[in-house]
Amino acid sequence: MSADTVIRPRRNSLRPVWEEKPTLIGQFGKGAILTVVVLAVLVPLWTVAVTSLSSEKTINEAGGYVFIPREFNPSAYVVIFSGGQVTDAILVSTIVTVAGTALSLIVTVLAAYGLSRPGTLGHRGILFYFLLTFLIYPGMIPSYLVVTGLGLKDNLLSLILPTAISAFNLVVLRAFFMSIPGELYDSARIDGAGELRILTRIVLPLSKAVTAVVGLFYAVGYWNAFFNAILYIDRSDLQPVQRVLQQFILAGQSPATSGAAVAIPGLGSSVPPSLAIKMAVVVVTIVPALIIYPFIQRHFTKGVIIGAVKG
């Protein structure tokens, strides 16, 4: 009787019965490592956010970065959103991200659907055509020559078209479309639906989650794209946010002469942006990722990404 009660696990414990009790050092060590790892990610983000919301005075008192929030002073955000280089950049990045994601998604969904029925004309050849992109890369220099040769220099299309298709996303979508039972297609066809109708009325509603995740990955890619802008965009009013971030933080440049900082009293055009403004730019580049992230994360459990990673 008493032996039974000893072996029986506590009802609310997740620990299997056969597992030995954790050692104090082990528990402490694990906790310490995980805390360090989590803090390593959160501390920089926290510091950036707090500093961006601080006034010039607080920043001077702290000697630079502010760690402990003392006020809520959104003036840096007012500055960067009230016209000038950063506002332009945010606009450019938003346009590129929205238009690019729409284009990528439409083209990828169409191709994934077109490839989802083995046995159709040219199926193997077309599939091979897409998969070969995994092995053969275009060189940077020929790509540059093609894009500039098409007259896309200083054109926002140069930030969209070269990266519009990811064969990986296409394969993920195709695999999902193929898992939809064929009877659904057949019954739709009996009812007289054409391929486009089947795609929009049956296949897409069934694969909302995967399509959304693929779209979000495209969106993150467009928002984060940086180097294409160095290659193809010279005009300062067409630079995306990542490029502006690089100029501010890494190259230590001040904003362009007709920039936002000029309009603010006490910040002449020769003065580099104050720390708060720089940090506000950093926050602005992070926020879209932060907004999108929970949506992507919700689908981790659905196995979309894990399945894709495992191939």
């Binding site: 439409i106 083209v107 191709a111 077109g114 004309l121």
Partner: peptide
């Protein structure tokens, strides 16, 4: 279906 693959 072929037409759908074409843009990509």
């Amino acid at each position: 279906l072929l037409l759908m693959c074409l843009p990509a």
